[in-house]
């Protein structure tokens, strides 16, 4: 594993834990898109079905299990435990506009027309756009809590670092996966606008708020 991949995985883990911790400590999921969190739970579930069919390494298995468990815990906190604080009116992104085209694309463009492969491809495509309900919610309310922006930054950083990991692997291992690379590029581009706001506002101690 190269350094980019290593930092990326822990950045991803940090993002997931920051979000869980924020919700648990504040006893509130205000400002968090439950829809994005459901999409991430679907992403992890469909991608990590290979936990049942193959063993790669203890690291690989542990991280997959942690990601899946934390994503379900987050969904549980939002829709069950702290449901009263969930801001459903502002979480109005139509997820079917993501899931249906992404499902169709996964059936059309994949490595192998087999159930597990299609689900893996579906998860890669879906992950690239799963943050959109969250970004839509922030654009609708015009603001985000600082802790939420830290979560988003870690989540965006993770996929950006994977791009470096893929460049590394191409040069040193001759390995590349076009599906993951294209989806990863799309995913990273979606965060660019946010990265700009994070650096120019949040890192300078200001709250992230958008002009009306």
């Amino acid at each position: 594993m190269n350094i980019f991949r290593g930092i990326a995985d822990f950045s991803h883990l940090a993002a997931i834990i920051i979000l869980l911790h924020k919700i648990w400590k504040s006893r509130s999921c205000a400002g968090i898109s439950g829809k994005s969190q459901i999409l991430f739970a679907i992403v992890f579930t469909t991608r990590y079905l290979d936990l049942l069919t193959s063993f790669i390494s203890l690291y690989n298995t542990s991280m997959k299990v942690i990601y899946i468990s934390c994503s379900y815990a987050t969904v549980y906190l939002i829709y069950m435990k702290f449901r009263a604080t969930y801001d459903g009116n502002h979480d109005s992104f139509r997820v079917e506009f993501l899931v249906v085209p992404v499902g169709g694309l996964a059936v059309l463009i994949n490595h192998d027309f087999a159930l597990l492969e299609i689900l893996w491809t579906f998860s890669i495509y879906l992950e690239s756009v799963a943050i959109l309900p969250q970004l839509f919610m922030i654009s609708k309310t015009g603001e985000a809590e600082t802790i939420t922006t830290h979560y988003l930054f870690c989540l965006g950083l993770y996929r950006a670092l994977y791009l470096f990991n893929w460049i590394w692997r191409f040069y040193f291992e001759g390995f590349f996966d076009m599906i993951a690379i294209v989806a990863g590029l799309v995913q990273t581009v979606l965060y660019c606008d946010f990265f700009y706001l994070y650096v120019t506002k949040v890192l300078k101690g200001k709250k992230l708020s958008l002009p009306a």
Binding site: N60, M63, W120, E173, D177, A180
Partner: peptide
């Protein structure tokens, strides 16, 4: 073999 490399990533 490539599939294993792919599935190694998270």
């Amino acid at each position: 073999e490539d599939e294993d490399k792919r599935k190694d990533e998270l």
